[in-house]
Design a protein around this nucleic acid. Structure first.
Length: 514
RNA sequence: GGCCCCUUCGUCUAUCGGCUAGGACGCCAGGUUUUCAUCCUGGAAAGAGGGGUUCGAUUCCCCUAGGGGCUACCA
């Protein structure tokens, strides 16, 4: 397989779902693996569902993930335009719909939406399902049942119409899926899908096939939800005379909810407190707004890595892959068939792996904006040192700020339970003497601080366990955190002195209050 | 309901007829460590069920069950 042309074809009806990102990723990977071309095409044929800003969101998401298209809207390419609304303006689709009519593979249908709804409910009342197909089309209002004159009259008087594909009866339609193998459909099961809507826009099915052909797409990699309509697509290629150059299909397994049933949906994000979008999406109402992976504190490399492994594996035991390594290792053959549950814990683990191997300086750069957002202003060196101390104990970028906040402001709360357990009011003077010793330390670095504290332990007769936890709680509020001496050094002499003073007072209060 | 797809530890998965069924996340235990974390060691944990084919089935076939998708003038 070399030089494939693949496309990611989202429709701008809202934020790009993480499943869409994975589809884009797989397309991108195959393109890069084979030295091919990755194309983005915007499928904006549904005017009623069009959402302002969605296209920008999609392009920005791809950019954040590092999945840069070779061709696409705003990028260019020899097969543009890359928005279907613009392609429609050029009359691209109508032409082929007409060709279908001329060849007897499609017909005009004049049934109104109301009429169709009515007949559907009538069927439903009889516990049947209505399907506009070879079995029912002769009972409907269309150019097959109307006389040629009547049809012409209706068309001439601008009566609304759709163009439907005339799916033949009693045929077997076989598709050969790269992931699933041979899948067969009986044409009687297939409905006469609308190709051209009454507003003149093509449906997905029409536009998709025309564009894939015109853009010389070689491989269609898309979600499994498209498998059932692929039979129609094969028929379209055939009737348009393009079957020889028909692309190969690869239908990806779906990404499922972390718990419960069904595929991952937008609502799962809110419900479970996890991101399901790459970037945050700000809608008019809070219910329609979502927090993205980026804002959650994920690195795009980790998201790619995580997503790549949802449905694919390299066949080796390596799990950490950069985007370049993924390009190298990727193959359609190693994509699985069954749906994969979204596992947030695993996603965090991937992120942690990337954080740990990242340099302190790079991390500082990434969390700088988060700190600014909280009103913390510190210089890069300080932040970098802070990252060095924290990076082995966080899994999200936001954890740095949330967990290590005490490096930027005073301790908010102390671990009272442990204060009660470990603080002895009669040792107050002893600890004050440590405070004074620390305050008079010349060069306040980790090594010197350690010496002072250890000397204190020796002379005071206290045990390590009676000193370290106290200092920890006094300085950070809790028993967990980075290396005590490095922490003290980074906080600096003044802040350490202040915090100890404030904490000892508080500890006394807590213990005397009983 | 109809059609299509899928089915190995809780989760993601390896296995392309010979398996003491491997790895990872998570979980548990132990070790390292001033705490937490990292790191190291160990542990519990799986072939949906029933029929075939075969010397031998997790692997191939069929049935059942379960899960998922589609069933719009949405993509």
């Amino acid at each position: 397989m070399t030089g494939v042309r693949v496309r990611f074809a989202p429709s701008p009806t809202g934020a790009l779902h993480i499943g869409g990102v994975r589809t884009a990723l797989y397309n991108y990977l195959l393109a890069k693996k084979t030295g091919g071309t990755f194309i983005v095409r915007i499928e904006d044929t549904d005017q009623t569902r069009y959402i302002e800003g969605a296209e920008d969101y999609i392009m920005e998401s791809l950019k954040w993930c590092g999945l840069l298209p070779d061709e696409g809207p705003g990028i260019g390419g020899d097969y543009g335009p890359y928005r279907q609304s613009e392609r429609k303006e050029k009359g691209l689709y109508k032409k082929y719909a007409q060709q279908l009519i001329d060849n007897g593979h499609a017909y005009f249908a004049f049934d109104t939406a109301e009429e169709l709804t009515a007949i559907r409910s009538k069927f439903e009342a009889e516990k049947k399902t209505f399907k506009y197909s070879s079995a029912t089309r002769m009972d409907m209002t269309n150019s097959l049942t109307l006389s040629a004159e009547e049809t012409q009259k209706r068309l001439a008087s601008n009566e609304p119409y759709t163009i439907r594909l005339k799916v033949p009866a009693d045929e077997l339609v076989v598709i050969n899926d790269l992931i699933r193998g041979e899948v067969t459909f009986q044409s009687n099961e297939l409905d006469d899908k609308i190709m051209l809507k009454s507003d003149g826009m093509p449906t997905y099915h029409m536009a998709n096939i025309v564009d894939d052909h015109l853009m010389k797409i070689t491989h269609v990699i898309r979600g499994e939800e498209w498998l059932p309509s692929t039979a129609h697509h094969v028929l379209l290629y055939r009737y348009l005379g393009w079957e020889e150059e028909m692309p190969q299909f690869a239908h990806l397994p779906l990404i499922l909810k972390p718990t419960g049933k069904g595929k991952l949906s937008k609502r799962d994000g809110d419900k479970l407190g996890i991101p399901v979008f790459p970037l945050s999406w700000d809608a008019a109402t809070p219910e329609d707004s979502f927090q993205g992976f980026r804002e959650f504190g994920f690195l795009s490399e980790a998201v790619n890595n995580f997503l790549a492994f949802l449905g694919w594996n390299p066949g080796t035991e390596q799990e950490i892959f950069s985007l370049n390594e993924l390009c190298e290792a990727f193959s359609l053959e190693r994509i699985g068939k069954s749906g994969a549950r979204f596992d947030f814990e695993k996603a965090k683990w991937f992120n942690q792996q990337y954080i740990i191997t990242m340099t302190d300086e790079k991390l500082a750069e990434l969390i700088q904006p988060l700190l600014l957002g909280k009103g913390y202003e510190f210089d890069q060196d300080y932040i970098a040192s802070f990252c060095g101390l924290m990076k082995e104990r966080v899994s999200l970028l936001t954890d740095f700020v949330d967990v290590g906040y005490y490096f930027f402001e005073d301790v908010r709360t102390y671990d009272e339970k442990n204060v009660r357990k470990r603080w002895k009011t009669d040792r107050r003077d002893l600890f004050e003497s440590l405070s004074i010793a620390l305050a008079s330390t010349e060069d306040f670095n980790a090594e010197n601080v350690e010496k002072v504290v250890k000397t204190f332990i020796e002379t005071s007769g206290l045990k390590f366990g009676e000193v370290f936890p106290i200092l920890r709680i006094a300085l950070a509020g809790s028993m967990s955190g980075p290396d005590l001496f490095k922490m003290m050094a980074l906080l600096g002499k003044e802040r350490v002195a202040e915090r100890l003073k404030k904490a000892f007072n508080y500890f006394d209060e807590v213990c005397l209050a009983v």
